[in-house]
Amino acid sequence: MSIDFKDISVVIQGPVQAYQGRSQEPGITHKCIASIRTHLPGATIILSTWEGQDCHGLNPDILLLNKDPGATIVSYNAKGEPGKLNFNRQIVSSAEGLKQVTTPYAVKIRSDNFLTSNDFVAAQQAFPARNDASKLFTQKVVTNTSYFRRYADGQKIVMLPSDFFHFGLTEDLLKIWDIPLFPDREFDPTKAGSPQYRGAPKVGPHAEQIYCNAWLRKLDSTVPYLQHRHQNSPELLAYWERFIASNLVVLEPEQIGLGLIQRFIPKSKRPNEICHQDWLLLYKQYCDPSIAISKFDIFKTIGWKRMCKLPFSYIKHQLTQIKK
């Protein structure tokens, strides 16, 4: 079944100007909108941003000026100074935009990314096999390998998908983004003088892990609360890999047709990130044994780099923990 572009809405979420803590390439949101008009003619464009943002010259079909929830306090350092991340800004701009969608399919894209093709539309249905016991989405959701990490500090980790780009059924994207806002972390005076954050004194989860853990626990009550970055077990890793194979289609940016601004483009593929071949191997293992992919195929591209770099990353992390 082919998907007609008129059955797709594109939610562009985030700021269209720089603000404190978030730089912005001038004119990038104009470029994003123009690229959608070029590569998805007939699709509905929804720009979901903040009150006070200068949207002059932008021409989305729907413009949402959300009330800015502000940055979220997620930590305190030893001096009691708060650390903030844009958790709720991303949730509000994504979820409120998706709630305006009336088409069966939707794209969620950052306001500082853009399209270079529409290849992701066909790719969404190119891998139909599922592991029935692991299905949490109605259909597959296409996502991006950039910042989709399989390793951190030389160790395999779980629940760290990229949040740059999603394409799939609107109902499935809402499963990811329509989650409760995160409350500010309250300062605990009994822990004054020590860092306070989720998982302390172990290494805290990455922001993407915290997002993913929240929506995955909403979909499946058996998923544990992720206390720290490296929390893992053979059972949890297998669960995460089955989920990836059965519910996602993980593609390189060029396979999606996703354009990234310069600061997101590495000089070479990062060994700690998933690659499309990694995902294909999981898809073969859990969904479709007929897929032609092997571990040696991965070794020839990114595997040998991992063998060289990951052990050093692990040793460096262990030494850092000892110094603490």
Rank of each mutant, 00 (worst) to 15 (best):
S2I: 13
S2W: 14
I3D: 04
D4P: 13
D4M: 13
D4Q: 11
F5Q: 10
K6G: 05
D7H: 05
I8F: 08
S9N: 03
V11F: 01
Q13R: 03
Q13H: 10
G14E: 07
P15R: 12
A18F: 09
Q20G: 08
G27M: 04
K31S: 04
C32N: 07
P41E: 11
S48C: 03
E51A: 07
G52F: 15
C55L: 08
H56N: 06
H56P: 07
L58P: 01
P60C: 03
D61W: 04
P69M: 02
P69I: 05
G70V: 07
G70I: 08
G80H: 03
E81R: 04
P82E: 00
N88G: 00
Q90N: 01
A95N: 01
G97P: 03
V101D: 02
T102V: 06
T103N: 05
S111V: 15
T116V: 15
V121D: 05
A123C: 13
D132A: 12
K135I: 11
L136E: 07
T138F: 14
T143G: 04
R150A: 04
R150S: 05
F165G: 01
F165H: 00
E171L: 03
D172K: 00
W177Q: 02
I179R: 00
P180D: 00
R185Y: 01
F187T: 00
P189K: 12
S194T: 05
V203H: 04
C212H: 09
W215G: 00
V223W: 02
Y225H: 02
L226R: 09
Q227M: 08
H230A: 00
S233D: 13
L236Y: 13
Y239I: 11
F243V: 07
F243P: 02
A245W: 15
L248V: 13
V250E: 14
V250P: 12
G257N: 15
Q262Y: 12
F264K: 14
K267Y: 14
K269F: 11
I274G: 01
Q277T: 03
L281P: 02
Y286F: 07
Y286A: 03
Y286G: 01
P289D: 06
S290Y: 11
K295Q: 06
D297I: 07
F299R: 03
K300L: 10
G303H: 13
K305N: 10
R306N: 10
M307P: 12
L310G: 14
F312G: 00
I315Q: 06
